[in-house]
Amino acid sequence: MARFTHEVPMRWSDMDAYRHVNNSAYFAYLEQARVAMFFHRHESFSAGTVISRHEIDYLRPIVYHPQPLSLQLWIDRVGGARFTIEYEIWDGTVLAARAATTCVTFDFAANRPRRLTDEERGILATYADEPA
């Protein structure tokens, strides 16, 4: 399967006083794509995952238009209780940003991280990026 692609519409309110999409809106775009990738398709992840880190490199400003942004997501690193999602945010044919999110599987009853299950590892493997 490799990369997962999800289209995310922009909202007029995502723009700021500098007339480009505000940096805080990017986190919502990442979240929408991540939820589409996992939680709408794989119920096991909805039971306990938290975010431990976000990174974003802004490459080009985005100005509101009615066409959705295209986000490509893939899994880069998998550890015992964590995994990293990499993203590219495309504004048409222009790469506007690159991002990464570190997710930790979490046991809310015990209030601590938990190890990834074999089922979860299998799901993550289907989103591993194909070598160029």
Rank of each mutant, 00 (worst) to 15 (best):
A2R: 10
E7W: 06
M10T: 00
S13R: 04
S13G: 15
D14Q: 01
D16N: 05
D16H: 05
D16A: 07
D16V: 01
Y18K: 12
Y18P: 06
R19V: 02
H20R: 03
V21S: 07
N22K: 09
N22Q: 08
S24M: 07
A25L: 03
F27L: 12
A28Q: 09
A28V: 03
L30W: 10
L30A: 09
L30P: 02
E31K: 07
Q32P: 15
A33D: 02
R34V: 01
V35N: 10
F38C: 10
F38N: 12
H40F: 07
H42W: 01
H42E: 10
E43Q: 08
S44A: 12
S44V: 14
S46E: 13
S46W: 12
S46N: 13
A47G: 15
G48Y: 10
T49R: 14
V50E: 02
V50N: 03
S52R: 07
S52G: 15
R53E: 08
R53M: 09
R53K: 12
E55C: 07
I56G: 12
D57S: 05
L59H: 06
L59G: 00
L59V: 01
L59W: 15
R60T: 00
V63K: 09
Y64H: 15
Y64P: 01
Y64C: 15
H65I: 01
Q67G: 05
Q67P: 00
P68M: 11
L69G: 01
S70E: 12
L71C: 04
L73I: 00
L73T: 00
W74Q: 08
D76A: 07
V78C: 07
V78P: 09
G79I: 06
G79A: 09
G80Q: 04
G80D: 02
A81N: 04
R82M: 13
T84C: 03
E86I: 06
E88L: 10
I89A: 03
I89W: 04
W90C: 06
W90V: 01
D91Q: 03
G92W: 01
T93Q: 14
V94I: 12
L95P: 01
A100R: 08
T101N: 11
T101V: 02
C103S: 09
V104L: 05
T105L: 11
F106C: 07
D107V: 15
D107K: 02
A109L: 14
N111R: 15
R112P: 00
R112H: 04
P113Q: 14
P113F: 12
R114V: 02
R115E: 13
R115I: 07
E119Y: 05
E119K: 08
R121Y: 13
R121L: 11
G122Q: 03
G122A: 07
G122S: 08
T126D: 11
T126A: 09
T126G: 14
Y127A: 11
Y127D: 12
D129C: 13
E130G: 10
E130K: 11
P131I: 00
A132N: 14
